[in-house]
Design a binder for these strands. Structure first.
Lengths: 180, 180
DNA sequence: TGGGTCATGTAACCTGTTACATGATTAG
DNA sequence: CTAATCATGTAACAGGTTACATGACCCA
């Protein structure tokens, strides 16, 4: 249930339309949570049914009319409950399409596996570079006991995660190319 | 589409029932792909419609009757196509419930965040330990240019991945506890 | 003898993906 | 002038999760 709560989190900062939320996602949470637009609209509908958000229709002339959502009291409470929830099972899910391929890679030529890993590593480097640049743009910040910079911990995670992936790909490639 | 292909991969080694496949999953692919039983049954149905597998009903007395699936020619071909497919976008998906919480953690007490991270790290250590033990049981193996031990690369990945998570959690905890 | 677990699966629901629709504005 | 992109969204389908069903056998 992280997408709903991500949306609640964003709405707790500012009211927004589905379109806005989708943009906000790409600019922030997208590093660690890829959501697509249509999903956001559906979640908003459900959240409104559930009373976590309220919407107001805004008529526009130059652009299509929009529906702006704001968080309710119940929604804020739900956000807090979720944040404070101590269950960790939902946090341990792992699912890697890459490893699924590698596991069965014995069925294809080693050269093809090597090509795949090289392409994968290059893409990781590219993604990592993008994050680094965007973090640099946000630039200087100071944290304190009153306001730790949590977003910074998430970008650190992503950068280190890509380092791990790049390292693993490199090690695996060198094993594969050294095999006798 | 990794689950279907994981099932195909397993069936390319041996015919099996949905129940068997679910067991096989937990013993191997589960490290990096959590699948649940009911999903496997549904995928098998669809794969049979699509002609990737064929099933045969086996009558049993002591146990419920079962349906044993085997891979078809078309299924084997599909497995190879998927393995050789050079697209990497599907491999780059990232989605972390943990980071979703951390991103919005400013809304709750720092002490609660610290508790969460400690529990998370402990669980990572536990999972990692389990994998290490299971790998040790599989034990000695030798690889060669003819048969690289791809499964070994996947378990290495998981072990290193947990190392990364543990390191990140530790670093984040020390930042959080040192804040003035 | 009552509660687990083995061995099979089905049903309902929730979440994620892909494709499409529409009218304005901007860039080449 | 045409194609892309902005700013809104809807619809259909695929994949993942949770809960339940059934009859045998095994353990305390």
């Amino acid at each position: 249930m992280s997408l709903k709560h991500g949306i609640l989190g964003l709405l707790s900062l500012n009211s927004a339309s589905g379109y806005d939320l989708s943009k906000l996602f790409s600019e922030s949470l997208n590093y660690f949570w890829m959501a697509n637009q249509s999903q956001i609209y559906r979640e908003l509908d459900k959240m409104e049914e559930g009373g976590w958000v309220l919407s107001e229709k805004i008529e526009q002339s130059a652009r299509p009319n929009k529906r702006v959502y704001r968080i309710t009291q119940a929604g804020s409470q739900e956000l807090l409950n979720w944040l404070k929830d101590e269950g960790i099972d939902q946090l341990m899910v792992i699912r890697s399409p890459l490893l699924m391929k590698i596991f069965f890679a014995g069925k294809i030529d080693r050269a093809d596996v090597i090509k795949l890993l090289i392409a994968y590593r290059a893409e990781c480097e590219k993604q990592q570079q993008t994050i680094k640049e965007e973090v640099a743009q946000i630039g200087y910040f100071e944290e304190s006991a009153q306001k730790p910079a949590y977003w910074k911990y998430t970008t650190n995670y992503c950068i280190e995660y890509y380092n791990f992936l790049i390292r693993w790909a490199t090690d695996t490639l060198s094993s594969l190319t050294n095999l006798k």
